[in-house]
Nucleic acid binder design. Structure first.
Lengths: 189, 189
DNA sequence: CATATTCTGGACCAATCGGTCCATAACGAA
DNA sequence: TTCGTTATGGACCGATTGGTCCAGAATATG
């Protein structure tokens, strides 16, 4: 046996970042190979196809990024926890505003690509669950009123996060985006 | 002089719908020509290039769709007017959820394409102005409290609309999206 | 009807696309 | 060191990409 000369996960991460920044269709295989420092045969041997790779990258993004987001939301003040999810998706000034890879895939692929669509819906569901639990926790400890349905609020937060991320990709200032996030939190009363 | 055999605006509209549904990169010139019922030479003679056409389509979308949206918002109850903008961007069950062409361009193009970026920012600004005026009207006639800054609320509404549209493209039910819209309106108190 | 002008269809182009394949290099096991 | 196995680089593929160009069709004008 001859061992691989690359780490599949590292390569996946590097390739994901390219798809994230440029989009699926606008990224050529050559772009991917260059970023991943891989030969064509290694790429196809390991990942199957460009499309398969995109699905793998999306899966990993949902696991890693959204997993971390949901994990960070599990403790402390519900309002703070929720605000943090917004804060960490808002790019700091000067950083590239790549938005959210899952959102990019939603817009570019979800409507015509069943696999991408399924992944995206799974990711959105996980995000909603994270918010749902945070809202419930907030309602239990009195931070958030019980008049509004926790499920509705969770869906509202998923939508709000996506809205902010869209505007970040359009180049809105961090300051304005944080303002929107605060206005959003105003619903939780 | 020989007269044109097609109506440029009609062709622009038909082509725009294809870009809207499939995205810029995923749409080939052949796709466009077929949808527009045009020959290649007529296309290039009239629109210059695929990229120029996309900019023209985006310009027209902003003028027509967002113009209508802003116009419909100018009268009557501010809350109702704002809600209507959400309602009309939420697809009815069974209809294709193409979302918002400007949003699609934001995600797919704004970061790397300066022209698309400029158009998108102009469109978002116009949308914000529409909401701003509606919020001011609401604050003047007592529908909306004066505690919150109208500009902040306008930006929040732009963001919220975009969030809902993203979820619509992900396949969320109209019922849930309307629920999100109502929760959003709850901020206007 | 003749002519000048403009529009159209499609041949044609180089470049690039995603993907396959194989000779060879590089390693683990013996 | 030899052998068997696997990973790698790159040649190669047909299809498609966006774009150019021109011969000829169609029409307004005189």
């Amino acid at each position: 046996m001859r061992p691989r000369e690359f780490e599949p996960e590292d390569a996946l991460d590097r390739g994901m970042r390219v798809l994230w920044a440029r989009g699926y269709e606008a990224t050529s295989l050559e772009d991917l190979l260059e970023a991943m420092d891989l030969s064509k045969s290694s790429f196809y041997e390991t990942f199957g196809s460009k499309h398969d790779f995109m699905v793998a990258a999306l899966t990993r993004y949902i696991d890693v990024v959204l997993g971390q987001l949901a994990k960070d939301m599990r403790e402390g003040s519900a309002r703070d926890a929720i605000f943090r999810t917004f804060d960490c998706m808002i790019p700091t000034r000067g950083m590239p505003a790549n938005g959210c890879f899952m959102q990019n895939c939603t817009i570019e692929l979800a409507q015509h690509d069943p696999e991408a669509r399924a992944k995206v819906r799974e990711g959105l569901k996980r995000l909603e669950e994270g918010y749902y639990r945070a809202v419930l926790r907030g309602q239990e400890n009195g931070e958030i009123g019980r008049e509004q349905d926790a499920r509705e609020l969770a869906r509202f937060l998923v939508s709000s996060l996506n809205g902010i991320v869209v505007l970040s990709r359009a180049g809105f200032d961090r300051k304005n985006l944080l303002g929107i996030a605060e206005t959003t939190l105003g619903v939780l009363r």
